[in-house]
C-alpha cells in the first residue's frame, strides 16, 4: 500500500510528465509552424480587409462612426442606436466583454457606410446603467458634413451625465 503513497506524490508530476510520449522536437516544430501560419493569415487578413474597404466603402463615400465612453468607468452601456438620414443604420446591444473593453478605453467602430458629399443628419441614442443600477438614456443630434475624403465621427457617451459628444476626426 505504501506504493499508493508514492503514486500520490507522483500525481503532482503528472502535469509535467504527460508529454513524454510526444517528442519535444515534434512539439517545438509544430508550434513554430503554427506561429508561421498565424503570421501568414494575419497578413492575408489585413490585405483582405483593405480590399474589402476599397471595394465596399471607397474613401470618397466612406463614413464611419465610433463609440467611446467618457469619464465614469462604472457606467455600463447597454444599447446604442444610430439613425443616419432618418434611417436606423446601427442598433447594438453590448456584451459584458464589450462593456469592459469600452470602460478600459477601447473604441468601437459601430457602423461604416457610404454617403454622398454634403450634410447628413445623425441621431444617436443610448441606454445604460450606473453601478447603483440607475438607468440612463439620452439622444443627441449632429450634422455629418461629408467632404471628399473618408469621414470619421467619434460618438463619446458620458453616461451618468446623459450626454453625447461628437468629434470629427
Amino acid at each position: 500500500m505504501c506504493r499508493i503513497l508514492q503514486i500520490t506524490i507522483l500525481m503532482l508530476l503528472a502535469s509535467v510528465c504527460f508529454a513524454q510520449s510526444v517528442s519535444r522536437d515534434e512539439i517545438r516544430g509544430l508550434d513554430e509552424q503554427i506561429q508561421d501560419v498565424k503570421k501568414d493569415v494575419i497578413d492575408l487578413t489585413a490585405e483582405l480587409a483593405q480590399l474589402e474597404e476599397k471595394l465596399l466603402f471607397p474613401s470618397n463615400t466612406q463614413a464611419s462612426f465610433f463609440v467611446s465612453l467618457a469619464g465614469d468607468n462604472a457606467f455600463s452601456l447597454e444599447a446604442v442606436e444610430l439613425k443616419l438620414n432618418n434611417e436606423i443604420v446601427a442598433h447594438h446591444l453590448y456584451t459584458f466583454r464589450e462593456i469592459e473593453a469600452l470602460q478600459k478605453g477601447g473604441v468601437q467602430r459601430i457602423y461604416t457606410g457610404n454617403v454622398q458629399t454634403g450634410n447628413h443628419p445623425l441621431e444617436v441614442s443610448f441606454i445604460g446603467k450606473s453601478a447603483s443600477g440607475k438607468e440612463y438614456r439620452a439622444s443627441a443630434n449632429y450634422t455629418v458634413d461629408k467632404e471628399v475624403g473618408p469621414k470619421f465621427v467619434e460618438i463619446k457617451i458620458a453616461g451618468a451625465e446623459s450626454a453625447i459628444n461628437f468629434k470629427d476626426w
Binding site: S68, R97, E100, A101, G105, G106, V107, F152
Partner: peptide, 15 residues
C-alpha cells in the same frame, strides 16, 4: 487617446 484606430485595436485586445 489620439487615434481612433488605435482605440479600435484596443477594443478588440481588451476583449
Amino acid at each position: 487617446l489620439r487615434d481612433l484606430f488605435f482605440g479600435q485595436a484596443l477594443f478588440q485586445a481588451y476583449q
